[in-house]
Design a protein around this nucleic acid. Structure first.
Length: 389
RNA sequence: GCAUCGGUGGCGAAGUGGCUAACGCGCAGGUCUGCAAAACCUGUAUACGCGGGUUCGAUCCCCGCCCGGUGCUCCA
């Protein structure tokens, strides 16, 4: 899917001392306490701002009668674990605060502070983590440092599939690999997923995928038209201005809480303006260069215009071959894979020759055959362009 | 039940207290083309869930209702 690798992949097991230090600091301030079994808990009463992220008001949630019996040792039912004492048979670390393993939340605080400092700009996560995990991270971090933890939180909403939660029992569960083997391009999946801003819920459907596929077609066709066309030297002031507007509107949309839906609009606006100009012979070399720059800037984030779809599909097919599941692969996909670029070029050349001799039936036959295999031909002043559907 | 997010044209989806409510996709007609494709133009008749309220004015603010998502126990 061409998602970038993080610069740092931190492992909790490699940061135990850091976590222990954090717990000790909390204990010194009276915000952490140890129970009889050796576990450490965070005292929620030590952090009055608790609940500020998920806007929960805990004042109405008194420690009730339904507290589990095994939690009797805690001062308050809502206090959460910082460190869990080792139980027989479990792996554990031998530390100054005892034998055991870290609680869920402390590892995130410790590692975030290790690499980003006590305060940092962005903390992201799924919407399900807002409460209690991120709330607990804030509580333990800010109590320890007396500084704001993350300045901004980005919570990604879960996607729906066909209007429902994706789950195996609903029968609407599939992996990226499944989609690739059905013949969908990686870029289409990518564009479909960002067609709704991260903050909004995305309903993932096959119609949506088909739509994204078509949108990518438009982007790529236009890109080809620019890179393969011949343009006269010079520039068109109106297009230069349009390119600049598109670029700044695009960046403004992304700056606006990563509004990916809004960010697409100026790019498509520019495409229409440019196509119109090309049709009228009013697009020149300098304009082409300026517009290609805008497209590159779009692709630096969205990464769908340049066609890199072959590799993920190949990998999926290899997997299918190795696990004996080629029979589950969409037949069109297999047919498409059979054609090499060279073979296509040869057929295109044969068709051009046939056209020259006004043998249109042979020319059309070649075009139709290729279309059957997912190759689309476009005649233009500057020669024949072809693309894989 | 409580909390929270959302319900915009045929579909997806931005956005705004008042100018013709972006953009994409689809469909129909037209221009171009040997025919197509691509591209462009035009259209898709009254698109802002329902009912109140605030306001000179609400799709946007407030209240209620309906529908959908998620959280509200543990574990990571």
């Amino acid at each position: 899917m061409r998602v970038e690798r993080p610069e740092i992949i931190a492992r909790a097991t490699e940061h135990i001392p850091r976590m222990v230090a954090l717990i000790q600091k909390l204990a010194e301030g009276g915000a952490a306490y140890q129970t009889e079994d050796g576990s450490w808990y965070f005292r929620l009463a030590a952090f009055p701002a608790y609940g500020k992220l998920s806007k929960k008001d805990l004042s109405g949630m008194q420690d009730g009668a339904r507290v589990d019996l095994d939690e009797y040792e805690k001062d308050s039912a809502r206090d959460f674990a910082l460190w869990k004492a080792a139980k027989p048979g479990e792996t554990f670390w031998e530390t100054p605060i005892g034998r055991g393993r870290p609680g869920w939340h402390i590892e995130c605080s410790a590692m975030a502070m290790e690499y980003l400092g006590d305060s940092f700009d962005l903390h992201a996560g799924g919407e399900d983590l807002m409460f209690p995990h991120h709330e607990n991270e804030i509580a333990q971090s800010e109590t320890a440092t007396h500084k704001p933890f993350a300045r901004h939180w980005m919570h990604v909403r879960f996607l729906l599939v066909d209007g429902r939660k994706m789950s195996k029992s609903e029968g609407n569960f599939f992996t990226l690999r499944d989609l690739l083997l059905k013949g969908y391009k990686a870029s289409a999946i990518r564009l479909a997923l960002v067609s709704v801003p991260y903050r909004h819920q995305l309903n993932f459907t096959f119609d949506g995928l088909a739509e994204a596929t078509n949108a990518i077609d438009r982007l790529r066709t236009f890109h080809l038209r620019l890179t393969q066309g011949n343009f006269a030297a010079g520039s068109n002031p109106a297009l230069q201005a349009a390119a600049q507007t598109a670029q700044s509107d695009y960046l403004a949309a992304l700056s606006n809480d990563l509004n990916t839906a809004e960010a697409r609009a100026p790019i498509f606006d520019l495409i229409r303006a440019s196509n119109t100009a090309i049709d009228q012979g009013q697009l020149f070399r300098d304009d082409r260069d300026a517009i290609l720059c805008v497209l590159a800037s779009f692709d630096a984030v969205f990464d769908v215009i340049e066609d890199r779809d072959a590799e993920p599909t190949h990998r999926a097919l290899e997997w299918a071959a190795q696990s004996g599941r080629l029979n589950e692969v969409a037949p069109e996909l297999l047919a498409r894979q059979a054609l090499t670029d060279e073979a296509i070029d040869a057929l295109v050349a044969e068709r051009t020759a046939a056209k020259k001799h006004r043998n249109f039936s042979r020319a059309d036959q070649i075009r139709n055959d290729l279309a059957q295999q997912g190759i689309v031909l476009e005649d233009s002043k500057d020669g024949v362009r072809w693309k894989r559907k």
